[in-house]
Computed example of a mutant assay.
Amino acid sequence: MTHEIPQSPDELPDNVYDGPSKSQVKRDMLALLDLGKELVDLSPERLKQLPLSERLYEAIRLAQRTTSREGLRRQVHYVGKLMRDAQSDEIRTQLDTWKNGSREQTQTMHRLETLRDRLLKDDGALTTLLEKYPQADVQHLRSLIREGRKEVTANQALRPGQEPQRKHYRALFQALKSLQDSETQDSDTTA
């Protein structure tokens, strides 16, 4: 028994997938247009870091130089059209990283903030920190913790509208970040 291949769309069975709907295609095109608009807002330095074709890069640069409202609208639509052939997933990933930082960076910042808060509340936290980072400048850390605690106490006594002091609070965070960065560099050079 041989099966005949349907010759016209009318002869196709109902359960055959024949591609995305018109609505989905339109949503995809609008998403590429929005991505193109984001690219037009980037600096030339950032644009050079993205996987853009020369033609797309030049179209974006022209849109950035266009002052006429209607001309800009048309140029942005042209950029959106060129985005169909671009590596849009890689571009979106990079833009997301620039906007939000990577998840690892965010988690690292939260860990450092938690460690800083622990150091300001608990003397035992410094001992634990020094076990992990024996190369740390103990005197400098103790000084920052002591001054940070003074700032916290002074900030609790502020009246509404007064600016809290955070100089040593921030300096302690930076010292912790430097410790972690130096450990990361040391592990990279030994690997």
Rank of each mutant, 00 (worst) to 15 (best):
L32Y: 07
S43V: 04
L82T: 00
P164T: 03
E163A: 12
L179F: 04
T190Q: 13
D89K: 07
R103W: 14
E131F: 12
E54Q: 12
P160V: 10
A157P: 04
N15I: 14
E4P: 12
D41M: 08
D14W: 14
Q64I: 03
D186V: 10
L52G: 00
R166S: 08
R84C: 01
Q156G: 12
A86T: 01
A31R: 01
S88L: 08
L52D: 00
V79F: 06
L172A: 01
A175G: 01
I91S: 00
Y78I: 10
E11Q: 06
P134Q: 08
R149D: 07
T97L: 15
E90L: 09
K132S: 09
E151S: 01
R65N: 07
Y17M: 05
L115M: 10
A63H: 01
V25E: 05
Y133W: 08
R61S: 10
D89V: 08
S53P: 02
R146N: 12
G161C: 07
Q162F: 09
R27Y: 10
T128N: 09
D96I: 08
L115S: 06
S182C: 09
L126K: 02
K26N: 06
T93L: 13
E54V: 10
K177Y: 11
R142E: 06
L42R: 04
L82R: 03
L35M: 04
L144Y: 06
L119W: 03
D34V: 05
L50I: 02
V79A: 02
S187Q: 15
L72P: 00
D137Y: 05
L120I: 03
T114E: 09
K48I: 10
R103M: 13
P9W: 11
D117Q: 06
F173L: 04
S43E: 05
Q87K: 11
S187G: 13
D10Y: 14
K99T: 04
R27D: 05
L35C: 01
S143Q: 14
N100M: 06
D14C: 10
Q87C: 10
V138C: 10
D10G: 11
L176G: 02
D186C: 13
P9I: 07
K99Y: 09
H140A: 11
S143I: 13
L47F: 01
R116G: 02
V138L: 11
D117A: 05
N100A: 07
L42E: 02
R73Q: 04
Y57W: 11
L32K: 04
H140F: 13
A59P: 01
R84K: 03
L120W: 05
R73Y: 04
R111P: 05
D10T: 12
Q49A: 06
D122T: 04
I145K: 05
R69C: 08
L179E: 00
R118K: 11
A63C: 00
P44K: 00
G101I: 02
E70A: 09
R166C: 08
L129A: 07
Q24M: 15
